[in-house]
Amino acid sequence: MADKIIALACAAGMSTSLLVSKMQKAAADKGKDYEIFAKSTADIDNMLAANPKPDVLLLGPQVGFMKAEVQKKAAAADVPMDVIKMQDYGMMRGDKVLEAAEALMK
């Protein structure tokens, strides 16, 4: 069982898979045992209702327009959430996105 669960949501759940790989490597390099995965925004309700639910939810910048709607759902589930910074997403900076996720989990 992972120490923390980090969920990413994007348009189809596939464009974020490379970022997930980079985040997993960054977590492993730091000695962290995190479960990190990406799914489609259509799965957000299921992710927030899962047991265990994610410790943090990050939206891909391409679905950032959904932030207000998702924030309400995440708050109701007591899951912190935010939108991944466009620069970090575009440059596939897994270490930076991991740091942002960790900051939200504190």
Rank of each mutant, 00 (worst) to 15 (best):
M1G: 08
M1F: 09
A2I: 08
A2Y: 15
A2W: 15
D3Y: 08
K4Q: 12
K4S: 07
I5W: 09
I6N: 00
I6H: 01
A9V: 03
A11R: 04
A12K: 09
A12H: 11
G13M: 07
S15Y: 05
T16R: 05
L18D: 00
L19M: 10
V20G: 10
V20Q: 07
S21Y: 09
S21N: 15
M23A: 10
Q24F: 07
Q24T: 11
A26W: 00
A26T: 03
A28N: 13
D29N: 13
G31C: 11
G31K: 10
K32Y: 15
Y34R: 08
Y34G: 00
E35M: 15
I36L: 12
S40A: 14
T41G: 00
T41W: 14
A42Y: 09
A42N: 14
D43L: 11
D45C: 02
D45W: 01
M47P: 12
L48V: 00
A49F: 02
A49I: 02
A49S: 15
A50Y: 01
N51K: 15
N51C: 06
N51Q: 15
N51H: 14
P52W: 05
P52S: 10
V56A: 12
L57Y: 00
L58V: 06
L59E: 02
L59W: 04
G60Q: 04
P61N: 05
Q62G: 08
Q62C: 08
Q62R: 09
Q62A: 06
V63R: 02
V63S: 06
G64W: 08
G64A: 03
M66S: 09
A68T: 13
E69T: 12
V70F: 07
V70A: 03
V70G: 00
V70Y: 02
Q71L: 12
K72A: 14
K72Q: 15
K73R: 11
A75K: 14
A77V: 02
A77R: 05
D78W: 00
D78C: 07
V79Q: 02
P80I: 04
M81S: 13
D82P: 10
D82V: 06
V83K: 04
V83D: 01
K85L: 11
K85Y: 06
M86C: 05
M86K: 04
Q87R: 13
Q87V: 14
Q87K: 14
Y89H: 06
M92V: 15
M92P: 08
R93H: 12
G94Q: 06
D95H: 04
D95Y: 02
D95W: 01
D95F: 04
K96Y: 08
K96N: 12
K96H: 11
L98M: 10
E99T: 13
A100L: 10
A100R: 10
A101V: 05
E102H: 05
A103D: 13
A103R: 13
K106L: 12
